[in-house]
Each structure stands twice: as C-alpha cells, then as structure tokens.
Design a binder for these strands. Structure first.
Lengths: 209, 209
DNA sequence: TAGATTGTTAATCGATTAACAATC
DNA sequence: TAGATTGTTAATCGATTAACAATC
C-alpha cells in the first residue's frame, strides 16, 4: 500500500523508534529534536530525519517532534492499531512460552488457538487454551478468519504445515522453525532463528578473544 | 581475531551457509559450485564467493567447493568448536524454553546454571538444573568461569543485572530482554527482540493488504 | 525578529553485483 | 588440452551522512 519503497533497513528501525518514544512518554518528555533522540537511540540525527520523512513530515522546524504524536504515528505506521487473528502451531516449550508472551496484544495480534500434532499434548490446558489437534488446522483457520500463524515446530515437517496453512488462507507467518520457508507472493514470513543468533554470538565471542 | 574487518552483513550470512551446507551433507552432496549454492540459498553466486573469500580461498577453480570441508571451515570461523560456559538468568516461561533448547551444544555453549530472583522459582528443578537465587550470580560466575549470560528477564532491572554480570567477568550476553543494554567495549551483546520482530511482521502485514 | 531545527538535496560511504583473468 | 569455476578487481547500486535553504 501507499508508501514508496521503504527499505528493510528503515522498517527494522521503526520498532526501535516506537520503543524509545514510549520510554520518553513514560518519563513525561513531550518534545524532542532529532539531535536529542540521536543521543539516546544511537542513530544519527540525519538518519532519524530521513527515516521519518519516508512517512511524512512529523516535525516542526525550530521545535522538533512532539513525542506523543510521533509515537502514535509510528504505531499506526507499524499497524499496531490493526487486529490480526493468530494461531500458534507447536505447543512445546517454546510454543508455550510464546503463547504466554504479553507482547501480542500491544502488536494487535490475538491468539485464537494452540495446535499440536502430539497426542500427548492435545487436550492440555495452556493459559486460556486447550491444545487442539493439528489435523484440524485448515478448518479452524478457514472458519475463524485467521490471518497469521506462529510456527514453533521442528524444521522437519514445517514446510508441509506451512503449505496447509497457506492453502487455508493464512497471510503471514511468525516462524521460529530453523528453516527458510517457501511461500507464494502475498504471504509474509518473519523469521526468528535462534540458531543463527546464537552462532552469530559465537562468532563475535571468538573474534573478541 | 585475525581477519580484516568483516561486516555484520557478512557475519549474519555465515550461519545460513553453515546450515545449508549441513543440509547438503545430509543429502550426501559432496561438491557444490557457487552457482548451485546460489540457486538453493538465494544469495548471488558472486556474493557467495566474495563472502567466503573474506576468510580464505576454500574453493578450487573448475571444481567448486568441497561441501564437507567448507562446512567445517565455516563451523570453525563461527567458533562452534570452542566451548563457552553460560548461565541463564530468568527462569520464567521463555527462560525455561531456552534452557531446553537443543541448539546450545551445537554452538558450543554449555549452560551451567539457571538463576531467578523470584523466591517461588528458587529451588525448582528444570531440566538438569535447580534454579538458583540471583543473589549468588556474581560468586557463581566468578567461581565457575562463566563466559556468557542468557538474559530472559523483564526490561526493568535488566541493566542492573547486566552491570553485576559484567562486574563478575562475563564477556557476552544473549539478550532476550526488550531493551538496549549498555556494556563496555569487549563485551558482546546479541539481541533477540521478539517485540521488534513482531512489530516488523505487523508492518509487513499491513503493507501487504 | 533571531535562533533552532526541520525537510530535503547533494556527497560520501559501503555493500552488492558484474566481469574476467587465473587456474584447476 | 578444453571447460568450468574460482578469486579478485572494477562498476553499480543503495544506504548513510553532510549540508543548507526553508520555516516555525
């Protein structure tokens, strides 16, 4: 929609702006210049102004930015005001932790059900949810207007589950499985790859010795 | 140490090379050209050759790369052969999931203890570990030669814990707390920020409508 | 008004891609 | 040897930074 091509580099800075502006609001700071924001967030003032101007002129010359207004603007740009329905697939350790993760509400995602393929998990109560049988994934997704799936399953079989989910109409995947999923255009995948993160840490530790 | 300045962009591709080469090994593919690797991994052949040549000439003209040798080389570059001792701080949902995460061994990290500040958690058995009192963090880190800390605690108080850990001699942090930690030079921080990831997904979903 | 700070254009820097000589 | 494919230099592209006129 709308905006000209925004680069991924810019997009991944937006949540950080949002967080720092939220912190400023908590501290009852009402006004901030790109220079001041630069000092606390660590990006150059120039980059901050460039980034923001991709989406509109939110500042005022000689004054800076209104913290609350900018916080709201970025929230809207991030789509935090929109509500998406989600299912979580894979109710193991990580899946349960994610299901309990409080950040969903803030991001406008609402978990509607937990699924697992393991008969020993099915029927268990986790938070407010009974774990459902993965067999019923497609019908549930179709009947409940599910927009995204949170994938907390092992890499083997992940692509199969994804194919089924996409077939059922899902439009986004928050993927914790350590594999690069193949999806058609129009389906968004956001990866959280713990192994890649850990390997990066390992590299940096080694270089730091 | 050693290598000339390797950019973060390159470093973050290394785990991916390692993973794809591991997959090829499993499929008993013994030899691969940058062009073939490009087809499966999605980077350009040119980029693959540039990336690898930052660390040495691992290929052979007219032949390509030996999969097993390259897999090992990249493993060594990533420091997967080195062993680091770790403590996990914050034994809540996420902390427990991470403690159970199998990837540590592969990356050469060994969890030595779990800590929590909540009296109700202290003493609990999780996996092979009894949850210890955060009060004793410094002494444990000093006495057990701990190299890294895995931080699974809320953002408030995270910086305090980090200061104490650094004081006790820790050299790296795998940080799941949604806050940018301040650390002196010589201490590595690798962030896994679920909120930022989720907000990014939210943005992309919205733009995709 | 004078001072401050934005929005935006131009310059710089760094990362990716293309090209090709070297060589297995 | 001829063909294939690397290693590496040069060209391009994109992102960041600097500069400054516009303007509050």
């Amino acid at each position: 929609m709308a905006e000209k091509n925004i680069s991924m580099a810019v997009i991944r800075r937006l949540p950080k702006y949002h967080r720092y502006l939220g912190d400023l609001l908590d501290k009852e700071v009402h006004r901030i210049s790109s220079k001041e924001l630069s000092d606390i967030i660590g990006f150059t003032a120039s980059q901050i102004r460039q980034d923001l101007n991709n989406f509109g002129g939110f500042g005022q010359q000689g004054y800076g930015y209104n913290v609350e207004a900018l916080h709201n603007e970025i929230g809207n740009i991030l789509g935090l005001n929109k509500i998406y329905n989600a299912v979580l697939v894979g109710a193991g350790n990580l899946g349960q932790a994610i299901a309990n993760y409080a950040g969903f509400r803030k991001a406008g995602f609402e978990i509607k059900a937990l699924f697992d393929a393991n008969p020993r998990m099915i029927g268990l109560k986790i938070r407010d949810f009974e774990v459902l049988d993965s067999e019923n994934l497609e019908s549930f997704v179709k009947e409940n207007n599910i927009d995204i799936a949170i994938l907390c399953i092992p890499k083997n079989g992940a692509q199969d589950v994804v194919d089924r989910l996409i077939n059922a109409g899902i439009k986004g995947i928050w993927n914790f499985a350590p594999v690069d999923l193949e999806v058609p255009k129009g389906v968004i995948v956001e990866n959280v790859n713990l192994t890649e993160s850990l390997f990066t840490l390992s590299y940096l530790m080694k270089e730091n010795e």
